[in-house]
Each structure stands twice: as C-alpha cells, then as structure tokens.
Design a protein around this nucleic acid. Sequence first.
DNA 1: ACTCACGGGACAGCCCGTTCTT
DNA 2: AAGAACGGGCTGTCCCGTGAGT
Lengths: 222, 222, 222, 222
Amino acid sequence: MLFSLRYSCITATSAENPQCISKGEMSKGETTRQQIIRKSAPVFNQRGFAGASMHDIMQATGLEKGGIYRHFETKQQLAAATFRYSLDQAIQARIGDIDPRATALAQLCLMVHAFAERPSPVPGGCPLMNTAVDADDTNPELLQLAREGVQSWKARIVAITCGGIQSGHIRSDTNPIAVANLIISTLEGALLLARLEASREPLEDACRSLTAHLESLAAPRP
Amino acid sequence: MLFSLRYSCITATSAENPQCISKGEMSKGETTRQQIIRKSAPVFNQRGFAGASMHDIMQATGLEKGGIYRHFETKQQLAAATFRYSLDQAIQARIGDIDPRATALAQLCLMVHAFAERPSPVPGGCPLMNTAVDADDTNPELLQLAREGVQSWKARIVAITCGGIQSGHIRSDTNPIAVANLIISTLEGALLLARLEASREPLEDACRSLTAHLESLAAPRP
Amino acid sequence: MLFSLRYSCITATSAENPQCISKGEMSKGETTRQQIIRKSAPVFNQRGFAGASMHDIMQATGLEKGGIYRHFETKQQLAAATFRYSLDQAIQARIGDIDPRATALAQLCLMVHAFAERPSPVPGGCPLMNTAVDADDTNPELLQLAREGVQSWKARIVAITCGGIQSGHIRSDTNPIAVANLIISTLEGALLLARLEASREPLEDACRSLTAHLESLAAPRP
Amino acid sequence: MLFSLRYSCITATSAENPQCISKGEMSKGETTRQQIIRKSAPVFNQRGFAGASMHDIMQATGLEKGGIYRHFETKQQLAAATFRYSLDQAIQARIGDIDPRATALAQLCLMVHAFAERPSPVPGGCPLMNTAVDADDTNPELLQLAREGVQSWKARIVAITCGGIQSGHIRSDTNPIAVANLIISTLEGALLLARLEASREPLEDACRSLTAHLESLAAPRP
DNA sequence: ACTCACGGGACAGCCCGTTCTT
DNA sequence: AAGAACGGGCTGTCCCGTGAGT
C-alpha cells in the first residue's frame, strides 16, 4: 500500500509507449525505434555506455547513423531507452508471472527462484547491476534510472511482505525493508559471483539460503 | 589446505613488487611507477577501462603521456596494474588485521563486519565488482584478474571454514564453499544496493543476516 | 541609354515570376515556393551559404526537408533564389519610389538618402555585400549574381547621371562611372562601419559627404 | 593623444608573441604554431569561419589534426589567432611605413594611397570586412575582434587628424571622427566594388575623391 | 504537396600511442 | 627520466539529399 505509488511509477517509466503495444499497431518509425532499442540493448548491457560505440550500434541495428539519429537525439537518450527496455524485460522475465493471489511467502519464494533460474533476457547480465556500476561517477541520468529501477523492485517486495503481515501469514515483527534488502543483495551478489565463475552454484546457494530465511518468517499457526 | 595454494597465488599477483616494499628502497623509476598506479587507481575504478582516458590519467598523475608510457607499454597494462593495486588495497583494508589465532567463526564474523563497515580504500567502490562488470564481454585479461581475485577471497573463506570444522568449532555438515558463496554474494550485493541508495542500511542488514547465519553454524557443545 | 539594357536585365533576374505577381494569382505550390524564399532569405543573409544549414531553413519555414526540396533542387538553387529576392527587396526599399521625372541630381540625392536612412528590409544587412564576401572564392554562381546586382545598380546611377548631363543639370565634364563608383563605395563602406560600430553615424557622414559631392556636380547656371 | 591608449591596445592584441619575434628565437612548438597561423590565414580569410573546414586547414598546413589541435584548443581559437595575424599583416602593409614626422595630411594621403594600391597581403581580401560580414549574427568573439580592429584604425586616423589640427596644418573646424569614417567607408566600399568587378577602377576613384577631400581640409596659409 | 524515414558522408574534436628532444 | 610534438584513426553528431508513403 505504502509503496504502490512508487511501484506504478516504475512501470510507467519502463514501458515504452504502452498504448501502442496494447493497440498492436505501430507506425513505421515507431517500429524502427523499437527495433533499434531491442538490438542495441545487448550492446549497451555488455559494453557499458562508454564502451559501446555508435558504430557498434550501427552494426547491431543494421542501420546507418542517419537512420538512428532520426529516432534518438543523442547516444545518451538511446542508452536511457535501452536501459528502460532491458530493465523492463528483466522484470517481466522474473516477476511477470507471479500470481498475486498466492501467499505472500509463496510469491517471494517464486520471485527468488525465478531470478535464480532464469538468465537475463538481455545478454550481458543484470542491467541494473551493469548500469549501476557503469554509470556511477560518470552518468547521473542513467544512474538515476537504475536507482528508480531498484527502488521499484524493493517496493514490490515490501508491498508483498506488508500484505503477508496484514493477512497473518508473515510474523508481525518482520521488517519488510530488511527483507527486501536481503533478497536483492543476495541475489545480485550471487549473480555477480556466478558471472565471474561461470557457474550456477552461487545462485543455487543464494536461492537455498533465501528460501530458508523466508520460511523462518512464516507466522506460527494459532 | 585445499585452497592454500590458490590463496597464496592472489597475494603474489596483487602485491606489486613486494620485495621492494619490504626492502624499503626503490629506484626513482619504481617510485614514479608506484605513484602512477596509486593516482590512476581511482580513475579506472570510477570510470572503467573504456571510460578512463589517458588524459584523465595525465591529470590524475600530473605527468605527461611520455612519462606514463615509459612505465607502462599500453593502457591495458596500466589498467591491470591499477586493478591489482586496488584489489590489494581492498583486501588489506578488510582482512588485513584478522587474527589467525582466533576462532574460525570469529574470523569470519570479523571479515564480514570489516567489509560492511569500512568503505573501499580506493574511491569508486569495490574494484572486484567494478572490474567484473566493466571487463565482462570486452576485456578478457582484466576479467581474468577479477576472477582470480574473487577465487582467492573465496579460498580464504573456505580455508577458515575448513579449519573451524577440523578444530570442532563449526558443524561438520557445513559446506565451506556454500558459506563462501553466501558471504561474498550477500556482501557484494549489499554493496551494490548501498551504492545505489547512498545508504548504509543494506550493508547493515547484510551484516546482521550473515552474522546470524554464521552463528547457526557453530558446532553444539558436547 | 547606354545602360538601359543592363538595368532592365536586373529587374528581370531579380523579380521572381513577375507575371504571377501581376496576375495576382498563384498556384498552391508557387505560394509555398514564395514563402520558402521569404522565410529563408534572412537565414542566408545572416549566416551565409555554408553557415546556413537546411535545418535552419526548416525551422524558419516550418516545412520538412522534403517539402523544401520539392521546390528547389539543391541548397544552392534555394540560396540563389533567396539572394535574388533579398536584393530585389533591398532595391525596392531604396530606389523604388524615386520619381523619374525629378532632376538627375535630386534623384541621386534621394537614392543616397534612402540608402542611408532605411535599413535593409531583409535582416542581416546588405545582401550584396554579404553575398559578395561570402561567395567570393567559394561559390561562383552566387558571386555572379552579386556581380550582376552591383552592375545593375551602377548602371542605374550611370543612366541617371547621363540623363542629367544631357538635360544640362550636371556638368558635362562629369564621369558618370566615377560618380557611380563613389556613391556605391561610400555607401557600402559606411554600411559596414555602421554595422561594426552599431551606430548610424558613419552612414550620416557618408550621406553628408556624398550630398556635398553631388551638389558640386551641378552645372553652373548660364 | 586622446586615442593613443586604444591604438596601443590593438597592436598588443594583434601581435602574436612579440617578445619571441624580437628575440628571433622560437621553440619548435612556437614555430609550428606560427606556421599554422600563417598557412591557415588565407583559408579563413577566403572561406569564412563556417566555410573553412579543419580538413582544409590540414591541407594548408600539411599537419594532421593531432598536430593542429595540440596548438589550438578549438577551431574558434585558431580562427581568432589567424584573424589577428591577418589584420596585423594588413595594417603593417598599409600603414607600417608611414613617417610620423610628415604632415598630418601627408600621412593621411599616404595611408589612403597605400590602401588603394597594395592588395591585401593575406589572400581573400580585407580581413576586417570579411570577418565583419562573416561573424555578424553568428560569432560574437570574432565580431568583437573585428570591432576592435576597425576602432583602432579609426583611432589612428583621428589621432593624426587631431595632431594636424593642433599643429595648424588642418582647419580647426574639422571633425576628426567624420574624417575617419569617410576614409574608412570609402576605402572599404571601394575594395568591395573592386573585388566584385575585378577592377582597380573603383579604388582609384576612391583614392582620387579622398585625396581631394583631404586637400580641402588644409588650413589656409596665414 | 508534403511528411516521414533513411542513407552515407563530412564535421569538429578526442583518442591512444610514438618519436624526438632535453 | 620526463616533456613536447605529432600522427592517424575513431567518436558522436550534423550534414544534404532521396524516396516511400499519405
């Protein structure tokens, strides 16, 4: 409840032209724009803002510079759009199919498992971590987007936890924010480790640990 | 025991010319080289390899290009040296003063607390995470260094845990690697969150959670 | 007499489609074409050929590029058309209302005063000087137009002077071409000075000097 | 006297590193810098700021971009330096050898003749006129330089005229500023005409007219 | 008749690295 | 050992012009 506003805000910023998607109709230019974003997303996600050149974007999209710059005024704007897209994709892949009618703990467990099991839909790893690290100290705009992204994710977890407390499934002495911090920290950290070691093991360990922790939050049956 | 070899390996790679340091004597050139590394480290750590220009390095070091390229053949080599330096600094700051005669659990707890409480000695955040994210997909050499860094850290935790099991302070059914994965994952993830939110809260939550987890590993008194 | 041909030639080249104007009817396309010229003229006059981009023209006209290129094959052609328009405007503003039945000297004085007192109807200063300076060494076509423009202006002065000589109002030992050269030189130079100093003073000085000079050309009463 | 300050100011700004020239010794870089200015001056003077590309400068100087941008931070700075050089050259060529001990009127006549007879030492015409027209409405910095240039020229004429009045050679009711305005206007305008017509005639006419005017300023012998 | 979309090349400026000089 | 000077190449961006679509 407390965070519903913030959460809705992220969906608004991350969805590119939702009305077009819902209508299923797009103008020629809008289609191209979406294609550019889709094709550019891996480039930025893998190489970072400074490491991705417009030449790379040209190759990835198959368009010439003139064609790209018609749809985005600057590389910065393109990077921002691709980040929103990448984040949106990552969110959809991980929490898109969580049943809101399930128990709060079940929802959280599902979120953790989905995160641990499904690789990032956009090549290059978690866009949130990538952008946070890449943009820190150099690109305030992108950093702000990453900030908003993580806050909305956090808000989502807090909202579910609060719901669980209210419905009596989660112990009332639980701190929702600490739960969110722990889940996100452990998952993102495990992702980093898994990337470096090229192994799924850290993710599985994180998943196990978080699941155990979540179960310990269950309210005792009356 | 199992990991002692690897651990010693990291100290070898991360320490720049330890014999010089121990001797306390350095040639003029070597001093300059160390200065370049020390002054460049924050630049690479904050902006990444592609984002840090030689012009930035020149400003940071106060040297002209010729002066820098006398000591490093390429930007790549300089970046590698600064990464080794940054990582070494980070390790020393966090686990340098851990008493090897303390209990295994005490050592691990101290490590966790030191990590959570002391900021990175090199500005720009954890060099391990930064380099892992920055070098992934673009710079195999730096990526390999980050890989070695995290593996040596992991080996250190595993070694302590194994020691605790052997000495009977840690439950024998404990998986040392899972412990290492969890510690590193949670701490690094919390660091990322803390950076994005500009708050120490995530780190404190991670510290609390890890401490509780470590205490649960204590072997029951006979 | 001698220059009447040349003078009529300038009106032909500088007037855009005079037959349409006389008829008072224009097709849609022709109207648009005229609008483009009218709106683009200040841009070219202020920034020069190389300095005026098609983007500037688009903003000034409110049309897209395609809409402009329908009416002009190249930027060069558009620039030529706008120059002709600007020059025509400037001429009309300065000598449009000179009564051909007045004395030759009166006509010349009026011309001088009109030039000194009325600013260029197209923003950016005298299109003749602008184009001459801008096109010299780089744009032969525009340079030729400027050449024709100044020659026709000169021809006009020469014609009036010759008329004055024939009618006995101007001393017969007067060199009409030198008169034209002096008038044009002094006025254009004063315009340049006035622009640089943002002051009307140079123009007034020039006007005074030319008036005095013209009066000295009056034939002595018999 | 009144304008001596202003006049000295222009010589200060227009002379590039006068101490080096006087000493006759220049470092390698300074020599290159002077060469760049000397070779670039005609390019800017002929094509204008927007019309002159760095590629043109490269061809003219025989240097690569890196070599040029070492000495000038931006194209703008290079253009400013070349303008100062061009103006200085033009001034030296026209009034450099005027004997300050001659009569005021003689000095002015010599100046007029020198201007009319000697072509601009830097190809492309009078840098003052070129820059004034080119920079107006687009380049305030260059415009300001042109402004200062013309003001210093004017100040020079005014100073000579004042000297003539004080020494009794010039009629005391003469307005020095009007004299300066007329001389500059007529000469610059004639230059424009001469350029357009590719003829020296307008310059000769201007010279004749100005000479006559100057003679009319002579104070009557007592 | 005009907008939208795109191509390909040119622009100023910055990049990393090398060489010459001191 | 360090600085000064220079070379090419690459960057993001803007350029003029064309053609499909409405």
